[in-house]
Amino acid sequence: MIYFAMNGRWQSETGGSWTAISRAPWLKAIALFGKGDCWDGGGLFTSNRTYWLNDGYGHHLIQDSSEISRDTTYQIAGYYGRECLNVYYRRLQRDGWIYIGRESLERWKTLDLFEKPLAQGWILRKIAHAEIGSPPGKGCYWDEHELENTTAGVTLKHPDWEWADWDRHRLVWSRLGCLYIGYLSGHKLRDVRLINDFNHLSFEPRCAPY
């Protein structure tokens, strides 16, 4: 897993913030890049053993690993600023989402549309919000989703789906701390089933085994 973090210890080796690569679910780094500020940072995997670093400027290598290598040739269309979206939107496109465009609603409030074609003429649409003063329970970046079948003339809105994607032959989504699956027919989403409810889980500190 690749993550970007800050502890604000600006005189430390990392400069107070860093990008790390670890063996999920552990946080202990196998590769570590000091950053020193909160612009850019993070990255995404381009294969099982290569990764793209969202560098911009300022990263310095502290620790490397022979398990993985940095992909310096990876390119994808679009630039989405120096915060989270420059990683998130690139990851969506890496995973088959098509970027449709941006709508500016008011000052400090925009939404970006992504679509993924599914089976039987269905389209999964992701509405990605970026705003200050977001609704209760939402961060400054949050998503909602809808399903559309233009042939059948059906649109199913799901503003409470926090994440959704297509998994082989089924739709998978998260809502209120739970993971669900369902199947698409010509006019509806059917056979909806709860896979797991994660609401009872709590953080437990554990040392990485490496």
Rank of each mutant, 00 (worst) to 15 (best):
R91F: 15
H59E: 00
T72P: 13
G56S: 01
A77I: 08
L53A: 02
R90T: 06
W97R: 08
N48E: 14
G101T: 14
S66V: 11
S65Q: 03
R90E: 03
R94A: 07
S66I: 10
R70P: 09
D71L: 11
H59Q: 01
D95E: 15
L92E: 10
S65V: 06
L92R: 15
G56H: 11
D95V: 11
A77Y: 03
Q63R: 12
L85D: 13
I98H: 00
F45D: 10
T73N: 02
H59P: 00
D95C: 12
T50H: 13
R102H: 02
D95Q: 01
G78V: 11
Q75P: 05
D64Y: 06
I100R: 14
R91Y: 15
T46K: 12
D95K: 00
H60T: 13
G81C: 07
A77R: 11
I68K: 08
W97T: 06
G56I: 07
Y57A: 08
I100G: 01
R94V: 03
Y51N: 06
T73F: 08
I98V: 12
G42N: 04
G56Y: 04
E67N: 08
N48F: 13
S65R: 06
S66G: 07
N54T: 10
L61Q: 03
Y57I: 03
S66Y: 10
L61E: 06
T50V: 06
R82Q: 12
H59K: 02
C84S: 15
I100A: 11
R91Q: 10
S65I: 03
W97E: 10
N86A: 08
H60Q: 11
D64P: 07
Y79N: 08
W52M: 13
N86W: 12
S66A: 15
S65C: 05
R49W: 09
D95R: 02
Q93F: 01
G43I: 08
Y89K: 02
E83W: 12
Y88N: 00
S47D: 04
L92Q: 11
I76W: 06
R91V: 13
Q75I: 11
N86Q: 07
R91K: 15
G78C: 10
W97S: 10
Q93I: 01
G58V: 05
L61K: 02
Y99M: 00
C84W: 09
H60L: 12
N48C: 13
I62Q: 06
Y88K: 04
R91E: 13
R91P: 04
Y88R: 06
Q63C: 07
V87I: 12
V87W: 02
Y89P: 08
R82K: 07
G96E: 09
N48L: 15
R49C: 08
G96C: 11
R102A: 00
Q93P: 01
Q75V: 14
Q75K: 15
R70L: 10
G101M: 13
E83T: 11
L61D: 02
G78N: 14
Y88L: 00
L53C: 03
L53Q: 03
R70Y: 04
Y51E: 10
D64L: 02
E83V: 09
H59W: 01
S65L: 04
I68N: 01
G78D: 10
I68A: 03
H60S: 14
R82G: 07
T46S: 09
Y88T: 07
R70Q: 06
H59G: 00
R90F: 05
G58K: 04
L44I: 12
